[in-house]
């Protein structure tokens, strides 16, 4: 078997563009999923029962489905139910954003609830309003606990973008596999794909470790 690694360099441009789409998709998803998560967390923590239940239902729904299934379902169901035809990228974005919002909602809720009740009581005892208690005491502490978990979610999201290749979104996995089928250079392209993901993902994983060390909870 002869290996021709030149195929990778020849397609470096295309692969780079694929990686760009991966990053773009991940960033766009997070930009939607962070506010989405905040909304879900607030709903879950609100004293209005229907809101809390709706949020819990949404979260349980997406936590308990394979992401690939959500992607396929979105691809087939969205156009039929809304009458709008979505581009593959938009479909992918919807599926990913819904999925990650559910996880973020849990992260934010758990982060806020992990702050001891005594802290808000001490702030209330000083005469602060509920909003001031949140802003000055609870959220700054919760943010420290949430940061590493959010970074972890980002790393997972980055990897999960590879799944949208099945609906022909031109991100890295799709691009690499397309070149593979066109050039028949299976081992070279698949190894290059793995190597590129590794090169992009490894530093992210290490950064997340650092965040856990820096902001990890010391009880």
């Amino acid at each position: 078997m002869t290996l021709d690694w030149a195929i990778v360099w020849e397609n470096a441009g295309a692969l780079a563009r694929g990686a760009e789409i991966t990053v773009l998709l991940a960033v766009a998803t997070m930009l939607l999923a962070i506010p989405g998560g905040v909304l879900l967390a607030l709903m879950r923590l609100s004293p209005v029962r229907p809101l809390a239940l709706a949020s819990a239902g949404f979260t349980e729904f997406f936590r308990n489905l394979p992401l690939l299934l959500v992607i396929y379902a979105a691809y087939y169901i969205l156009p039929l139910t809304t009458g709008i035809s979505f581009s593959p990228f938009a479909t992918a974005l919807v599926a990913l954003a819904l999925n990650v919002s559910a996880y973020n909602g849990e992260t934010f809720r758990a982060g806020i609830q992990s702050i001891r009740k005594g802290q808000s009581e001490a702030a209330l005892a000083l005469g602060m309003s509920r909003a001031q208690v949140m802003r000055e005491v609870v959220l700054p502490q919760a943010a420290r606990r949430i940061a590493p978990v959010l970074a972890s979610t980002w790393v997972s999201l980055f990897k999960d973008t590879s799944l949208v290749s099945v609906i022909a979104v031109g991100e890295l996995a799709y691009t690499a596999m397309r070149i593979r089928s066109q050039s028949f250079r299976v081992l070279e392209m698949l190894t290059a794909m793995a190597a590129i993901y590794w090169a992009l993902g490894y530093p992210q994983a290490k950064l997340t470790d650092w965040l856990y060390r820096r902001f990890g909870v010391r009880e």
Binding site: R116, G118, Q119, E121, A122, A123, L124, A125, L126, G127, E136, V137, P140, Q141, R144
Partner: peptide, 16 residues
């Protein structure tokens, strides 16, 4: 509450 001061068993200082 501004006219009362409370001191808690667990101090509850704001750690940040």
């Amino acid at each position: 509450r501004r006219r009362m001061g409370m001191v808690f068993q667990n101090f509850e200082l704001f750690p940040h």
